[in-house]
Amino acid sequence: MKLVLTGAAGRLGSYLREPLAAMCDELVSTDIADDIGKLYAGESYIRADLADMKQIAPVLEGADMVIHFGAIVDEKPFEELLGPNFVGSYNIWEAGYQAGVKRIVYASSIHAVGMHLKSDFIGTDAEHRPDTFYGLAKCFTEDLGRMYWDKRGLESVHLRILSCAQVTNARALGSWLSYDDLIQLVTRAIDTPSVGFGIVYGVSNNDRAPVDNVKASFLGYRPKDNAEQFAEKILAEEGPVDLKDPGQMCHGGPFSSVDLGQSGLAQMNIVNDRKET
């Protein structure tokens, strides 16, 4: 089996490379970075721009599946996101179809439904309510994946990741996806025999998880980690909840309250614990 991983130079990509290389005959990692460090057995690296079909199409030749994690991972003005996050997704699906790829596993996001209230306990069938242009790109790609399945039979699994980073705030007590559970989720999205088109929330087995993932059980994803282990320390440090702040009441967190085009990550304490090879 040949797999292609986009966004290989990113933080989440750094944790996926080794397990992906171990489960296939050939892993092609790609990003726009000059290099990604030491390669694992069976892994090669190709520098390519997602927004350029002439660069990305050759990378997908002969691939069985694509794990598409490449994108700008923050809110930006629409014009900055258009190439990598919108056009880039189209290029992956169209190049994948032309190359005969069986399945695309996509790093979607809770920000596709970020304006829903956390108290609504939404499922994977919740209507799109993006909180930013970044979230809008996730909506676009989910709909793109559904269309390519309906019209062309190209399978895809869309992983609506809530927050895959160290637990540093009260929101993460519900939204946390551990790196081990991320790896399990991606693995199940690859090795499940048939998926058609599917959406699954990327979240660990948290006591306070604010979403209903029951309709994603067909993947066999059974998260093992729980953010409750961090609750006592985090809650002792947090201030009172502002019930008028969308950033505290909505699924998108700070992305729900920032102005369009303004960074959501700037309001979050994300620890860059990228895995080094």
Rank of each mutant, 00 (worst) to 15 (best):
W149L: 03
D150V: 15
Q55G: 12
G174S: 09
I270N: 08
L5Y: 07
L3W: 14
E94G: 03
P254F: 15
R47I: 11
R129M: 04
F121P: 09
G70S: 09
P210T: 05
V28D: 01
R17T: 00
K138Q: 07
A216I: 03
I110R: 01
C24E: 06
K244G: 14
Q262I: 02
K54E: 07
D52R: 14
G202T: 10
L12H: 01
D49Y: 15
D212K: 12
C139V: 15
S108W: 00
E79I: 03
G239S: 15
W149D: 05
S256R: 01
G42S: 04
Y40F: 11
P193T: 10
Y45H: 02
I110Y: 06
Q98F: 08
K76S: 06
S178M: 09
V157F: 01
P130L: 08
N205M: 05
G96M: 01
W149P: 12
N226V: 15
V241K: 07
F218L: 04
T187L: 03
G196M: 11
G10P: 01
A107P: 01
V203W: 00
N272R: 13
L5H: 11
E127N: 05
D74I: 00
E238D: 08
G123Q: 02
A165T: 12
E18P: 06
V167Y: 05
V113T: 05
N205H: 12
L82R: 07
E276Y: 09
E232W: 07
N206Y: 08
M23S: 11
E94A: 08
K215W: 03
S257I: 03
Y45V: 00
S256Q: 10
G42R: 09
T6Y: 10
L60F: 11
Q166T: 07
L27Q: 14
G253Q: 08
S204R: 07
S14V: 03
Q98Y: 13
E127V: 04
E238I: 08
E228I: 15
I183M: 03
E26Y: 09
A137H: 14
S44F: 14
N169C: 13
L12Y: 06
M147P: 15
P254W: 08
S204Y: 04
P19W: 06
N213R: 14
L265V: 09
P58N: 05
F78H: 05
L243S: 03
R171A: 13
G145L: 05
L3R: 04
V101R: 02
I92A: 14
D25I: 12
D120Y: 03
S89D: 01
Y45R: 00
A126Q: 13
G42P: 04
A9L: 06
S204V: 09
I67A: 04
A231N: 07
C139R: 15
A266I: 12
I183Q: 12
L162V: 09
T6S: 08
D180F: 13
K275N: 11
I183K: 10
L154M: 08
P19R: 02
R208K: 14
L265W: 12
D64K: 14
A51Y: 15
A216E: 03
A63N: 14
R129N: 15
E142F: 11
I199M: 06
G198K: 02
P19A: 07
D131S: 06
C164R: 02
S156D: 05
M1N: 09
E142V: 08
A172N: 11
L173H: 04
C139S: 05
P193S: 06
D245K: 10
N205F: 02
A21Q: 01
M249S: 02
Y90P: 00
K233W: 06
E80I: 05
D49Q: 08
S14W: 03
E75C: 01
